[in-house]
């Protein structure tokens, strides 16, 4: 999704109303309960919250020009990888095997066999259509953020085709955009 993403795709940046800000906070807090204690540090109530609208119904949540979260249409908010690296335990994790890393890092969606093979691992509780962190065999940090297409049980049972959509991965356009002016 962010494969070819750059500041040019940002069509409008707005400081959002307090009520919208509250709503965003609320939905982030609901989605990632692990983030709640630090949410005040991440999204300080004082400093303005800016939402950048981009092409393809994409929204970026910025604080101090740093992108922290993104969402599509009215979908769930997902943290950027830099944020996820800081707080790795806020999301459910799926792990792919080593062979898949190369493909994921060039933007491929995550296929079921990569998750079910010996190198991969699955969190059984993951349902369909939830944001997940994609970890890799033998690596400490997440390499991508995905949005599951089917539940973990289905991934195991079907073991074919796309299991997780790749939303945001290392070295894609959003990763390179550390700051947005």
């Amino acid at each position: 999704m962010f494969k070819k993403f750059s500041a040019e795709e940002v069509s409008a940046q707005n400081q959002v109303k307090a009520s919208v800000q509250r709503k965003i906070r609320q939905s982030i807090a609901d989605e990632y309960p692990g983030l709640e204690p630090v949410l005040d540090d991440l999204l300080p109530k004082k400093s303005p919250l800016i939402v950048a609208k981009c092409q393809n119904h994409l929204n970026l949540v910025l604080v101090n020009n740093v992108p922290l979260f993104f969402n599509i249409r009215d979908g769930p908010y997902m943290p950027t990888l830099r944020l996820l690296h800081q707080y790795p335990n806020i999301m459910k994790k799926l792990q792919v095997d080593r062979g898949a890393i190369k493909f994921v890092l060039s933007g491929a969606n995550i296929m079921c066999p990569g998750l079910t093979s010996p190198g991969g691992s699955l969190d059984e509780e993951v349902g369909a259509e939830t944001p997940v962190a994609i970890m890799a065999e033998g690596k400490q940090h997440a390499l991508a953020i995905g949005f599951t297409k089917m539940s973990a049980k289905d991934i195991k049972a079907i073991n074919k085709g796309i299991g997780v959509d790749n939303m945001h991965y290392l070295n894609d356009g959003l990763w390179k955009m550390e700051r947005l002016e």
């Binding site: 204690p37 630090v38 707080y87 790795p88 690596k139 400490q140 940090h141 070295n171 990763w175 390179k176």
Partner: peptide
């Protein structure tokens, strides 16, 4: 009760990826 401290990740200064990648 306590805040989880942010993990400091070592990023490569050349390619900007975490060092392990």
């Amino acid at each position: 009760a306590e805040k989880p401290q942010p993990v400091r990740v070592l990023y490569c200064s050349i390619c900007s990826l975490p060092a392990e990648y």
